[in-house]
Write a protein that binds this DNA or RNA. Structure first.
Lengths: 197, 197
DNA sequence: GCATTACGCTACCAATAGTAGCGTAATTAG
DNA sequence: CTAATTACGCTACTATTGGTAGCGTAATGC
């Protein structure tokens, strides 16, 4: 990227621009995101932005990725506890910005070209989905969850439920609310929970 | 709408335009939908389209609504059977057009103004979601499904799982596939199914 | 000093949703 | 038959906006 020769890029510009992008995404959504607004808010020229990101969509994906933060968690040995922490961490990153970044991510995903969509999948989706599937499988193996459903079905249903409520039904992304929803879903699959009533 | 006086609107134009819109949506998606392309494909002037629908988004919603078709079903008395028929009917309408109209509907929903989103909710979402919730509640009351989850959670998880797979993961909307997924999810909530293994 | 790259700036291009106005066609009311 | 009214196609236009080109200038390494 940055060559060893020539004038170096101004430090902090990436951060400033991403922060401005995130802020504008939170208030106007991806559909209302304007590259000129980002440039103005960040105090840089539009051309500087295009020198660092190839398109508005790429910039938005980078901003959301930054908002998601680091999703690596140390395993505790209890799959269900790890699962809850994974969900909580991811949701917290998305909810902390005052807007439904989940919905924004959906927008971006739908409008982007195939190459960008693949990056979106690898950088936004899979870092949550893949570990979650592994954890569910391990929970099933230990008899903590009913084996009646496939792990991927279960995870997709949980993620899908959140996406659907936030992105389609328009409910606010409240971290506690989401955690409770995921908890209720898990409870309905929990082996001991399924046995009573 | 149409006054009693003056030249009447050409018959069949609504149908032709909606069919052309649906066709273009199926091949290019909502993001790739161009009003001029619709006009050309339908063989009408662009101004004629704007005389009948206030915006491109409204036109697209009307086209998807038409693709969904009539979703009223006669109750059989068996909630689970009714549920399956409801899902099958809705999915069949969406899948029959060769493209993921679910994903398209997502696009439209996100980009539209609040008034249109409300119409989308009332005309596309709720006609499936509300009866489904009622049927699930009734299945729980009869002991056919586990009472561990709230009916709305359950329905949203099922719808969300389908939306997520089609609209985010990019899987094709195959009617049999979706029915099988919904069936697996239901089985994991089914009282007898949850008891074994 | 020289090559190289970044920055801000202005100007520009291309695509596209939506509108205005015109001539004309079709219909109803009297 | 005439007048009023509305629809249609057409051309031209406006406004917005993503993205690019080119220029003068500022930093940096060699």
């Amino acid at each position: 990227m940055s060559a060893s020769t020539g004038r170096p890029r101004r430090a902090g510009v990436d951060e400033t621009v991403l922060a401005a992008t995130l802020d504008l995404l939170a208030t106007h959504g991806y559909t209302g995101l304007r590259i000129n607004d980002v440039a103005d808010a960040a105090g840089v020229a539009k051309t500087t932005i295009y020198r660092r990101w190839p398109s508005l969509a790429h910039l938005a994906v980078a901003a959301v990725e930054r908002a998601l933060g680091d999703r690596t968690t140390a395993p505790t040995g209890d799959p269900l506890a790890d699962l809850e922490r994974l969900v909580t961490t991811a949701v917290a990153g998305l909810a902390a910005n005052g807007a439904s970044l989940v919905a924004i991510a959906q927008d971006i995903h739908r409008q982007a070209d195939p190459e960008l969509r693949s990056a979106y999948r690898q950088r936004i989706i899979d870092p949550v989905r893949e570990p979650a599937i592994t954890l569910v499988q391990s929970a099933i193996d230990r008899g903590l969850l009913s084996a009646a459903a496939q792990p991927a079905d279960l995870v997709d249903a949980a993620i899908g439920a959140v996406l659907y409520r936030v992105a389609v039904l328009g409910e606010p992304l409240d971290a506690d609310h989401v955690t409770a929803l995921a908890g209720r879903l898990l409870a309905s699959w929990r082996r001991d929970g399924a046995r009573d009533i």
